[in-house]
């Protein structure tokens, strides 16, 4: 029973991590396109693929030289992505806490 629960939680956690990563990549790519940054796909992948958020902070610092171009911006889509990313992150974190709880209780 515990093993089944652990497997289900584990798979859900991995899926939520992948979803978070994908949404973050989309959000950063949207911002890079709005600022007319060269190679937005590659830049967003580099910014979002770190585990300690250093890529994100570097992107936020370096993007200051590029102002947002109103014609290329999609504020509604951006807002939508932010909400989805926040929700998936909260789900991911909750699954992580449940997993840790089960592993500690098991011992």
């Amino acid at each position: 029973m515990r093993i089944t629960l652990l497997i289900v939680l584990g798979i859900s956690f991995v899926v939520s991590v992948i979803l978070c990563q994908l949404l973050l990549w989309q959000l950063v790519r949207l911002d890079a396109i709005a600022r007319k940054i060269a190679r937005p796909g590659l830049v967003s992948w580099l910014a979002s693929s770190n585990q300690n958020m250093i890529g994100l902070f570097a992107y936020i610092t370096l993007r200051r030289q590029h102002a947002i171009i109103a014609e290329l911006d999609q504020p509604a889509e951006r807002q939508h992505l932010k909400i989805r990313l926040t929700t998936s992150f909260v789900v991911m974190f909750s699954l992580f806490i449940c997993l840790m709880g089960i592993l500690f209780l098991w011992q």
Binding site: L27, V28, D31, L56, I60, R78, K82, T86, F89
Partner: peptide, 12 residues
């Protein structure tokens, strides 16, 4: 860390 991540998302 969670709070920082959520803030950074909304900063983008």
């Amino acid at each position: 860390i969670c709070w920082l991540f959520i803030l950074t998302i909304w900063f983008i």
